[in-house]
């Protein structure tokens, strides 16, 4: 089976090193080109520089939080409008910050503690599958 993730450039923004590493390792293993960002600020500059195919975006991050990053990306460029972004968080669904996400991009919201790593990979893979399939 063709690996649709191979050579896909993935930007992972996550301030928790252990999580960042786990995710980076997993997606490297899946054949992705992983770009790591330890906070929102780095994430934004890397996004502009690297033009990733997909973004995993943590919400609670120092400097610039994920919500802001999301907003910046979505309003920055044509690419920014189209790029699949999966929000990762350990916030609860009722957290105030979440209400915006749930409303705008409900399918791209994952609670880290509820999702196994391979499920996250599957979710990312979904982004590249043709809707027809």
């Amino acid at each position: 089976m063709e690996n649709i993730l191979s050579n896909k450039k993935i930007l992972i923004a996550e301030d928790e090193p252990a999580m960042l590493n786990a995710l980076a390792d997993k997606f490297t293993q899946e054949g992705c080109v992983v770009v790591k960002a330890e906070n929102g600020e780095i994430a934004l500059s890397l996004f502009a520089k690297e033009k990733p195919d997909v973004i995993l975006l943590d919400i609670v991050m120092p400097k610039v939080d994920g919500m802001k990053v999301l907003h910046e990306i979505r309003t920055s460029s044509d690419w920014g409008k189209r790029v699949p972004i999966i929000m990762l968080t350990n916030l609860s669904a009722d957290d105030k910050i979440m209400t915006g996400i749930v409303a705008s991009e409900p399918s791209y919201y994952l609670v880290k503690s509820d999702w196994k790593l391979y499920e996250v990979v599957e979710k990312v893979r979904d982004c590249f599958r043709s809707p027809a399939l």
């Binding site: 928790e16 999580m19 995710l23 997993k26 350990n90 609860s92 790593l117």
Partner: peptide, 25 residues
């Protein structure tokens, strides 16, 4: 309270999330 709750839920869930993923790997 709700800020505490959200913080607590976030903070409390982060370590088990990491443990879960590493154990999974």
């Amino acid at each position: 309270k709700s800020e505490f709750m959200s913080l607590a839920s976030h903070q409390l869930r982060t370590p088990p999330s990491i443990i879960g993923w590493y154990a999974e790997v």
